[in-house]
């Protein structure tokens, strides 16, 4: 296995808060890598740096062996890295189908002034994509009328429509009703495996991590505290104390030892 994304020594501080304090991470070709950790640990900051939204103050990021540090989001997308958002970023006045078709158009070429967006080929591709996400029945309603779960899926579908080789997802299941959650993740994983997309996803649900991640990285105060297969990492007492105790409200309390919790 080769590394698709290589982050080395990433540092970024907001005032006194160290959101990234020396992040080293290799994302391997074809893997599903989960990122877990308490709020404020710098998980979203990592995604923002990898997609060009934030520029690290130190360190470097390489994609397919070439440096991408400091490139704009647009330049990075064109190289094959797409992202989805914790708060879905949809074109709210367009239908779900038009949202998906716009993403297809963004990949194929937006600069045609006369042929319609919903030309047969793009309409078919957008409809097929929505179908694979289980959104076919919602294709013709406006994006702002969707429920949270469907908005999340549509948001991810738009990122997948760009045909990335690496997809970074910021909390794909947050805000999704517990009953829908597993179904959504199963759909997502099936679509991504079929498209052979490498995926990094920030996740708070340990059950999702255990079932779907190949590896899990534990973020803590801007650093990676642990990295490895979920079975091993999640069993680590330190990780349980740091993260899982916080994540799983209602779980049996783990005896606290030494240092306190995180802000």
């Amino acid at each position: 296995m080769t590394a698709l994304l290589e982050a080395r020594g990433l540092r970024l501080a907001f005032g006194g808060v160290r959101a990234a304090d020396g992040i080293d991470l290799d994302v391997m070709q074809g893997e599903f890598l989960a990122i877990i950790g308490p709020n404020g640990a710098g998980k979203t900051t990592f995604i923002n740096m990898a997609t060009g939204y934030l520029r690290p103050q130190a360190g470097s990021i390489a994609y397919e062996g070439r440096p991408i540090t400091g490139l704009s989001p647009r330049a990075i997308v064109r190289r094959g890295i797409a992202r989805s958002f914790q708060l879905p970023q949809l074109f709210t006045e367009h239908t779900v189908l038009e949202n998906a078709a716009l993403a297809v158009a963004a990949r194929e070429g937006i600069w045609s002034p006369l042929a319609p967006l919903l030309r047969p080929r793009w309409r078919e591709e957008a409809a097929a994509l929505l179908g694979s996400f289980g959104l076919a029945a919602l294709a013709d309603i406006r994006a702002d009328a969707l429920n949270e779960g469907a908005r999340k899926l549509a948001d991810i579908a738009m990122a997948v429509a760009l045909r990335p080789r690496l997809l970074l997802m910021d909390e794909p299941t947050s805000g999704v009703a517990a009953a829908e959650k597993m179904g959504i993740v199963e759909t997502l994983v099936r679509v991504l495996r079929e498209a052979r997309v490498t995926a990094v996803f920030v996740e708070h649900d340990m059950e999702v991590v255990e079932r779907f991640a190949d590896r899990v990285a534990v973020w803590s105060q801007g650093r990676i505290a642990a990295l490895g297969p979920p079975a091993r990492v999640l069993a680590d007492p330190a990780v349980q104390r740091e993260v899982i105790g916080i994540e799983k409200a209602g779980a049996p309390p783990v005896p606290a030892a030494g240092e306190g919790g995180h802000a």
């Binding site: 716009l102 070429g109 600069w111």
Partner: peptide
């Protein structure tokens, strides 16, 4: 025709979600 085409639809996208356009390249 322009408003129906990708360029016109992306134009309407500036009104609602300009950042998404950038993250679509």
């Amino acid at each position: 025709a322009y408003l129906d085409a990708p360029m016109g639809q992306a134009l309407a996208g500036i009104k609602t979600r300009e950042t998404r356009l950038e993250f679509m390249g």
